[in-house]
Simulated scan of single mutants.
Amino acid sequence: MNKLSKIFVVGLPRTGTTSICSTLLTLNYCVAHTAYTQTTFDKANAIADTPVFNDYKALHQHYPNSQFIYLTRNAQKWIPSIKQLLLRMYHNVVRDDGGFNPIIKRCYTEIFSPFTLDNINNDDFLLACYNKHKAAVTEYFEQQRHPVLFIDISKPGNYQKLLKFLNKQNINDDSTDLSFPFLNKGGKVTAWKDLKHPLKVDSTKNGRCSTLDHIS
């Protein structure tokens, strides 16, 4: 896998991005769960979450030979989970005197627009954001005639679909019994930070992020 060939996980936050990143580590990929520097993009073979879910079109243009995986999740489970996350993030997204880095702010305010507390607390709004994002991803890659793997990591058989998509189906003779790990349970979002693995790639350098001008 060269620098212009990556695996991008396009699913929205709280669809299982940490779980699939953990799985990709076990498949011997260098993995970044979020990427905010050019160094991260250069080092990682697989990247998920921010800014991928928002910048997939630019990433496809910059890394044309890449593989894209879209994570789906049952709306009744996703909506309360994403609501909890967005409410926790809200102040640091909207504040103009610091808070999250500009890439996080841009991605979340574009996908969940208008990014207001009223909207975050509105289940219909969140579902509309989910459906709009999935439809936009589907339409874009259909127009590009570029294959995308759509999977729900909670569904039986989707681990095997991932292995086949990545041409890794012979990596383990017992793969029929394998499934994705269930991480970040109960609204927690620290599983990736706590995970130790030699192939894990840092998202930032010394806490700083670049502007990623080539994909923005």
Rank of each mutant, 00 (worst) to 15 (best):
L27D: 03
I47N: 08
S22E: 10
D42K: 14
L24V: 06
F41R: 05
T34G: 05
D49M: 03
N54D: 14
T34E: 15
I47C: 10
T40S: 15
S19C: 02
Y29D: 01
T23R: 04
A48S: 15
F53H: 06
D49H: 00
Y36V: 10
T18F: 03
T37K: 09
L25E: 02
A46G: 04
N45Y: 01
S19F: 01
A46K: 04
S19Y: 00
Q38I: 10
P51H: 09
C30Y: 11
K57H: 08
D49Y: 01
A44Y: 08
Y56W: 13
L24I: 05
T39H: 14
V31N: 01
T40E: 06
C21H: 02
Q38Y: 14
D55N: 12
F41Y: 15
N54M: 13
Y36M: 12
S22Y: 09
V31Y: 01
Y36S: 10
P51I: 10
C30K: 14
T26Y: 00
Y29V: 00
D42E: 15
F53S: 03
N54H: 15
T40A: 14
N45G: 09
K57Q: 15
T23N: 11
D42G: 07
L25Y: 02
L27T: 04
L25M: 05
T50C: 13
T40K: 09
Y29N: 02
S22T: 04
C21M: 07
K57W: 08
A32T: 12
Y29H: 07
A32W: 03
A46I: 05
